[in-house]
Amino acid sequence: MTQEPSTLYAKLLGETASITWKELQPFFAKGALLWVEPTLDLIAVAEAFAENREAQVAAWLKSGDVGKVSESKALDLFERDPPLWAVVVAPWVLIHERA
Score class of each variant (00 low, 15 high):
Lys30His: 07
Trp35Ala: 06
Leu33Met: 04
Thr2Ala: 07
Leu12Lys: 07
Trp35Phe: 11
Val45Asp: 13
Met1Lys: 00
Lys22Thr: 06
Glu47Ala: 14
Glu51Pro: 03
Pro26His: 08
Asn52Val: 05
Glu47Arg: 14
Ala50Arg: 08
Ala29Gly: 03
Ile43Lys: 07
Arg53Gln: 15
Thr39Ala: 11
Leu33Cys: 05
Glu15Asn: 10
Glu54Gly: 12
Leu24Trp: 01
Gln25Asp: 06
Gln3His: 03
Ser18Leu: 11
Phe49Lys: 09
Ala10Lys: 02
Trp35Ser: 08
Leu33Thr: 00
Ala32Leu: 04
Trp21Ile: 01
Ala17Arg: 12
Leu12Thr: 09
Pro26Gly: 13
Thr2His: 02
Leu12Asn: 04
Leu33Pro: 03
Glu51Gln: 12
Phe27Asn: 07
Ser6Ala: 00
Phe28Gly: 04
Thr16Met: 14
Ala55Leu: 06
Pro5Gly: 03
Ser18Gln: 15
Gln25Cys: 00
Thr7Ser: 06
Pro5Phe: 02
Tyr9Cys: 00
Glu54Ser: 10
Arg53Glu: 11
Gln25Ile: 02
Ala29His: 03
Phe49Asn: 01
Thr7Asn: 05
Gly14Ser: 03
Glu47Met: 11
Gly14Asn: 10
Glu47Gly: 14
Ser6Lys: 01
Arg53Trp: 08
Glu37Trp: 10
Ile43Glu: 11
Ile19Leu: 06
Leu42His: 04
Glu47Gln: 15
Gln3Thr: 03
Leu40Arg: 15
Arg53Leu: 12
Leu8Glu: 00
Ile43His: 10
Leu13Pro: 02
Thr20His: 00
Ile43Cys: 13
Thr7Phe: 05
Met1Ile: 01
